[in-house]
Computed example of a mutant assay.
Amino acid sequence: MSNKSAQEMAPAEVRALIRSGEWNVNTSGISSGYVQGNIVILPKSWADDFLKFCQMNPKPCPIVGMSDNPGDFMLSSVGDDVDIRTDVPSYKIFRDGKVVDEVTDIRDVWQDDLVTFVLGCSFSFEEALVADGLEIRNVTEKVNVPMYRTNIECRTAGPFSGTTVVSMRPMKPKDAIRAIQICTRFPSVHGAPLHFGDPESIGIKDINQPDFGDAVTIKEGEVPVFWACGVTPQVALEQAKPPLCITHSPGCMLVTDLRNSQLAVL
C-alpha cells in the first residue's frame, strides 16, 4: 500500500491495488479530482436496448464511457490500462435477473460478446460539494452512501424498466439549495437532486434502513436530500432477466482517468 492517502493516489495507483486484491471495499473519497464509474456489462444482444434505456433515463444512468467493441475488456475510453475484468473492487454477477455471486475478478466468466457501460457516479459531485464547504455525512462517517429503492418510475426501453434508486445525503435546507445549484453543473454524474424532504412521498418507508449501502446520522434540523443513483440499472436488470449481466457492487466503483472538471457544465 502506498504511503499516500487514498484521496491523494492517482487512479492508476488505485486500480493497481484493486487488481492485486489489496483494495476490495468501497471507493468513496479516493483519487480526488477523478471520475468514478458505475459498471454494467451485458451480452451484445442485450446492449442496444440497455443503451436506449440509459439515453431515456439520463439522470440515474448517465453514460461516461463504454467498450469500443464487443469483447473488449480494456476500456480506452476512460483511461490507460483499464482492465474491466480486474479493476473494480467488487462485482455482482446476475444470471436470469438474480445475483448468483459477488467476486473481485471476472476473468473466468468473461465472454467475447460482452459490452461494458460506465455510468457517472455521485462520488464526483460529492467532491464539488465538499469544495464548497458542505459536509457529506457518509464521507465524514467513513461509510458507504445510503441508497434506497423508490416509487419513481424509469422510462422503459425494450425489456428494461423499473423504478429509480436514489442515494441520500442529509443537509440543512439552505445547504440543500446550495447543493442543487452546484450539482446542476454535473449532468454526467446524476445532476441536481430528484427530491428532498419527506422520504415516504417517493416510496421510502424507513430512512434508517437503506436498501444498499449504510445508514448515516440525520441531525436535528436536517432534511434528507436524494439524488438519482447508478444502482438503478441493477433494478432494471432484475426485471429484464438477461442470461448474464455483471455490475459493480454498490459503492465499489471503477476509478477512471477522466477528471471531474471535464464533466462540469460551466
Results as ranks from 00 to 15, higher is better:
Ser188Gln: 13
Asp211Asn: 14
Val88Leu: 06
Ala215Pro: 08
Val118Gly: 00
Ile63Phe: 03
Ile41Leu: 01
Arg85Trp: 02
Pro250Gly: 02
Asp112Leu: 09
Pro210Asn: 01
Val25Pro: 06
His190Tyr: 01
Val99Pro: 00
Leu263Ile: 04
Pro89Asp: 01
Ile39Leu: 01
Met74Ala: 12
Glu238Lys: 03
Ser249Tyr: 15
Cys154Pro: 03
Met1His: 12
Val145Gln: 09
Lys52Glu: 08
Lys92Trp: 04
Pro243Tyr: 15
Ser76Met: 09
Arg259Cys: 15
Gly230Lys: 06
Lys52His: 12
Gly191Glu: 01
Ser31Gly: 08
Gly230Leu: 01
Thr140Cys: 06
Ser249Glu: 06
Val25Ala: 13
Ser249His: 14
Asp211Glu: 10
Glu220Val: 13
Trp227Met: 12
Met9Val: 12
Arg19Phe: 05
Gly213Pro: 10
Asp198Phe: 04
Cys229Ala: 07
Ala47Phe: 03
Ala10Lys: 09
Glu153Gly: 09
Cys183Met: 05
Lys44Trp: 15
Tyr148Lys: 05
Ser122Trp: 01
Val255Pro: 04
Pro250Asn: 03
Phe186Tyr: 14
Asp80Ile: 13
Ser188Gly: 14
Gly33Leu: 06
Val139Ile: 15
Asn24Trp: 10
Gln7Ala: 14
Met74Tyr: 09
Ser124Asn: 02
Trp46Asp: 11
Thr150Ile: 05
Lys172Ser: 13
Ile182Ser: 09
Thr164His: 04
Leu51Gln: 12
Phe50Leu: 04
Val14Arg: 06
Phe94Gly: 00
Val216Leu: 00
Ala6Phe: 15
Val145Ile: 14
His248Leu: 10
Lys59Tyr: 08
Asp113Gly: 03
Asp80Cys: 13
Gln7Asn: 11
Asn69His: 12
Thr232Gln: 00
Pro70Met: 03
Val130Ser: 11
Asp108Lys: 07
Val78Met: 07
Ala236Tyr: 06
Gln181Gly: 06
Ile177Tyr: 10
Asp48Ala: 12
Lys241Arg: 11
Asp68Gly: 10
Thr163Arg: 13
Ile18Glu: 00
Lys172Asn: 11
Val143Glu: 08
Met1Pro: 12
Thr247Pro: 03
Ser90His: 03
Gly79Asp: 07
Gln209His: 13
Leu114Tyr: 01
Lys4Trp: 11
Leu17Tyr: 07
Val14Glu: 07
Lys142Asn: 13
Met1Glu: 15
Gly133His: 00
Asp87Pro: 02
Ser2Leu: 13
Asn69Cys: 04
Phe117Asn: 01
Pro70Arg: 10
Trp227Tyr: 09
Asn151Gln: 11
Lys241Val: 11
Asp257Lys: 05
Leu194Cys: 10
Gly29Pro: 10
Pro43Thr: 04
Pro43His: 00
Gln239Val: 15
